[in-house]
Design a binder for these strands. Structure first.
Lengths: 248, 248
DNA sequence: AATAAGTTTTCAATATCTCGAATATTTTGA
DNA sequence: TCAAAATATTCGAGATATTGAAAACTTATT
């Protein structure tokens, strides 16, 4: 169930490494950066060069990606079936609350972030699209769990380990079920430092085009608490707006 | 010497397929799009989902990439060691000539396009960064060949097949050598339908930050011919500008 | 509601990639 | 300039992914 195809992962990790390093790398630097033997990295780099995804910079042996990956990524996003419609709603929610806004959905036994609009404060919850979070300790994950019927919920809870990630994590099934019940009643779900210390998340279900997603607001507990009720109300408005979008 | 690591290629081809298809694909559609057995595609898709690079859209079984790839690609380009400086020069050249401008370099036994600024005409030479062109039948390739000393040139010509791609391709070594000599004398190199029928390219060496690159102008033969001298002169100005940039 | 057509998933033999070690090359430092 | 260190490349045994085939599941059609 975990990542399977090693080379696929490595290929993407190589690009991520360039994104982090912010400069051309030699073969061995790249190998070190992605934790791969130099000899294996050698073949990968040769392949990517052959394909025009990376090129050798200058006269030395360093390589760097061409714009090709950006080009592919832009073509993909240009035609994204979803995000075009939802982006304005998320940005308004961010502007009204000042906190980071996230759109996410279930992916396997986790949650994947589809879109992140970062908050306006210097201290803010920071995340990237594509990040994976646990079902039991993220606000969006609780939305997902709460949407399951009893049978599916029991099976899912049995399968996923309720790993204690912080002292506040609800690692106990009964506590988690009570928390889900609270959320169902309120219409939104909350985490208080259960996944990252000091972070509060609140999330509500949203179904743009009929697709089951969730929208979340996240920031430092202290600041979020001060505006808890206003933020919650604003979040629910955004969730309703999203659900009205895109007949798809 | 050709592409070696199969999965690396497939991974990128999968993303390219989404860029082309412009919509979510089922597993078998994706497999068909990239010419891979469904069973193999299955593992690849599972891996990419695990990594947050793709997610399942809607309730059906279609998948589409998240913004994660774009995020990585943007981080890479944000810190591109080269393109920040050269882009304005290329764009001015494009604006002054109306034709497509390309920055390229040698990569193995081919040429890779690093940057493309497309022309302003409806009918124009269209290309993408990362495309690979032959050394012997592209204007940039001729710049590369002409920069080699006799020993390296002989070895390279022996290694690469002078494939006849169009009727106009210089598939004969003597003819190609004479053409290179002409180019050296003029200071720039020309192709006339040698790689793509109806396309004329002209290229000159440029060395921003000391790195051996080439800048090219490409468009329909008929239109390029009408402004041949002016374009050539303008191209050489741009090449000089580029070579003065970026101490690196 | 049943059948057919298409799609996804699993499986184990096989083709391919991976990795450490050895070799070759380049860079660094004196 | 030479020696030492670092880096890149090659190679074969072993680890891993790939594949067609078959089973399980969905969706479309009658």
């Amino acid at each position: 169930m975990n990542a399977k195809v090693r080379t696929a992962v490595r290929t993407l990790e190589a690009f991520e490494a360039f994104g982090r390093s912010q400069k051309p790398l030699t073969l061995s630097e790249l190998a070190r950066a992605i934790g791969v033997p130099v000899s294996s990295c050698h073949g990968l780099v040769a392949t990517l060069r052959n394909r025009g995804y990376i090129y050798s910079v200058g006269n030395n042996r360093r390589v760097y990606p061409t714009r090709r990956l950006l080009d592919v990524a832009e073509a993909i996003v240009r035609n994204d079936p979803l995000l075009e419609f939802v982006e304005p709603v998320l940005t308004r929610l961010r502007d009204d609350t000042g906190e980071t806004v996230i759109l996410g959905t279930r992916e396997g036994d986790g949650v994947v972030y589809l879109e992140v609009v970062e908050g306006l404060h210097t201290i803010r919850y920071s995340a990237k699209p594509g990040e994976i979070k646990p079902l039991h300790s993220s606000a969006i994950g609780k939305v997902v769990l709460a949407s399951l019927d009893e049978g599916a919920l029991a099976k899912t809870l049995a399968r996923i380990a309720l790993e204690r990630i912080t002292p506040a994590t609800l690692a106990d099934e009964d506590a988690l079920r009570r928390d889900l019940e609270d959320g169902r009643r309120r219409g939104f779900f909350v985490t208080r430092g259960e996944n990252v210390a000091d972070v509060m998340g609140m999330a509500a279900p949203a179904a743009p085009g009929g697709q089951a997603l969730a929208v979340a607001l996240a920031g430092p507990i202290e600041r979020m608490d001060r505006s808890f009720d206003a933020h919650a109300e604003r979040l629910l408005v955004a969730a309703r707006e999203l659900s009205g979008l895109g007949a798809d």
